Amino acid sequence: DLRKKIVDLHKSGSSLGAISKRLKVPRSSVQTIVRKYK
């Protein structure tokens, strides 16, 4: 699940930009998912 991957990467200390590059999703999507998770 993409959300879980993003949250896991964020927990392990990756920046939003790094996560978005790695998973090839827009940075804004990463930000939204991380914000919802918090």
Results as ranks from 00 to 15, higher is better:
Leu16Gly: 03
Pro26Asp: 07
Lys38Phe: 10
Lys36Phe: 08
Tyr37Glu: 07
Val25Glu: 04
Thr32Gly: 12
Arg3Glu: 13
Ile19Ala: 01
Ser28Trp: 12
Ser15Gly: 09
Lys21Asn: 08
Tyr37Asp: 06
Val30Ser: 04
Ser15Arg: 03
Arg3Tyr: 14
Lys21Met: 06
Lys5His: 09
Gly17Asn: 15
Val25Ala: 03
Lys11Glu: 09
Val30Trp: 00
Ser12Ala: 14
Ile19Asp: 00
Ser14Thr: 11
Leu16Asn: 07
Ser28His: 11
Gln31Glu: 13
Tyr37Arg: 05
Ser15Tyr: 00
Ser20Gln: 02
Val25Gln: 05
Leu9Glu: 01
Lys5Ser: 08
Asp8Lys: 10
Ser20Phe: 00
Leu2Ser: 04
Gly17Gln: 11
Thr32Pro: 05
Val7Tyr: 09
Tyr37Pro: 05
Pro26Cys: 07
Ile6Glu: 01
Gly13Pro: 01
Leu16Thr: 09
Gly13Asp: 01
Lys24Gly: 15
Ser20Lys: 02
Ser20Asp: 01
Val30Gln: 02
Val30Gly: 04
Lys38Trp: 10
Lys36Val: 06
Ser14Glu: 15
Ser15Phe: 01
Lys11Thr: 11
Leu23Ala: 02
Ser14Tyr: 15
Val7Met: 13
Asp8Asn: 10
Tyr37Thr: 07
Leu9Asn: 02
Ser14Pro: 02
Ser29Lys: 15
Leu23Trp: 00
Ile33Val: 13
Asp1Thr: 12
Leu23Tyr: 03
Ala18Cys: 12
Leu23Phe: 05
Arg22Tyr: 12
Ile6Leu: 01
Arg22Thr: 12
Ile6Asn: 00
Gly17Tyr: 08
Arg35Ile: 07
Tyr37His: 10
Ile33Trp: 00
Gln31Thr: 08
Lys38Ala: 11
Ser14Arg: 10
Val34Thr: 04
Leu2Met: 09
Lys11Phe: 08
Val30Ile: 10
Lys36Asp: 11
His10Ser: 04
Tyr37Gly: 06
Ser28Lys: 14
Val7Ile: 15
Ile19Phe: 00
Pro26Phe: 01
Arg27Thr: 06
Gly13Thr: 01
Lys36Ser: 09
Lys36Tyr: 12
Gly13Trp: 00
Leu16His: 06
Ser15Val: 01
Lys36Ala: 11
Gly13Met: 03
Lys24Met: 09
Ser12Phe: 07
Pro26Val: 05
Gln31Trp: 06
Arg3Pro: 06
Pro26Tyr: 04
Gly13Glu: 01
Lys36Met: 10
Lys5Glu: 07
His10Glu: 02
Lys11Gly: 05
Lys11Val: 11
Leu23Asp: 03
Ile6Arg: 01
Leu9Ala: 05
Ile19Val: 02
Thr32Val: 14
Lys21Ser: 07
Ser15Met: 02
Val7Gln: 06
Leu2Asp: 02
Ile33Asp: 03
Arg35Gln: 11
Pro26Ser: 13
Arg22Lys: 13
Lys24Leu: 09
Leu23Lys: 02
Ser14Asp: 07
Arg27Tyr: 14
Ser20Tyr: 00
Leu2His: 05
Arg35Trp: 05
Arg22Phe: 11
Ile6Thr: 02
Ser12Glu: 09
Arg3Asp: 06
Ile6Phe: 00
His10Gly: 01
Arg22His: 12
Ser14Ile: 15
Arg27Glu: 06
His10Val: 09
Ile33Lys: 04
Pro26His: 08
Ser12Arg: 11
Lys5Phe: 10
Gly13Ala: 01
Lys4Pro: 03
Asp1Trp: 14
Ser20Arg: 02
Leu2Glu: 02
Val25Trp: 04
Ser12Asn: 11
Arg3Ala: 13
Val34His: 03
Lys11Ser: 07
Ser28Pro: 06
Asp1Tyr: 13
Lys5Asp: 05
Ala18Ser: 11
His10Thr: 04
Val25Leu: 08
Gly13Cys: 06
Asp8Phe: 13
Arg35Thr: 08
Ile33Met: 03
Leu2Gly: 03
Lys38Gly: 10
Val34Ser: 01
Arg35Lys: 13
Val25Phe: 03
Tyr37Ala: 10
Asp1Gln: 11
Tyr37Ile: 11
Arg22Glu: 14
Ser12Thr: 10
Arg27Pro: 05
Thr32Leu: 14
Lys24Ser: 10
Leu9Gln: 04
Thr32Glu: 14
Thr32Ala: 15
Thr32Tyr: 09
Gly17Phe: 04
Pro26Arg: 09
Lys38Asn: 09
Leu9Lys: 00
Asp8Glu: 14
Val25Ile: 13
Lys4Leu: 08
Val7Pro: 01
Ser14Phe: 15
Ala18Trp: 07
Val25Tyr: 04
Leu2Pro: 04
Gly13Val: 01
Ser14Ala: 15
Val34Trp: 03
Leu9Cys: 09
Leu16Val: 14
Lys11Asp: 06
Ser15Asn: 05
Asp1Pro: 09
Asp8Trp: 13
Ile6Trp: 01
Lys24Pro: 02
Asp8Arg: 10
Tyr37Asn: 06
Ile19Tyr: 00
Asp8Pro: 01
Leu23Glu: 03
Lys38Thr: 09
Gly17Trp: 07
Leu2Asn: 05
Leu9Val: 00
Ser28Tyr: 11
Gln31Val: 14
Gln31Lys: 14
Ile33Cys: 05
Ile19Lys: 01
Ser15Asp: 03
Lys21Gln: 07
Ala18Leu: 07
Leu2Arg: 06
Val7Ser: 03
Asp8Ser: 12
Lys36Arg: 13
Gly13Tyr: 00
Ile6Lys: 01
Ile6Val: 11
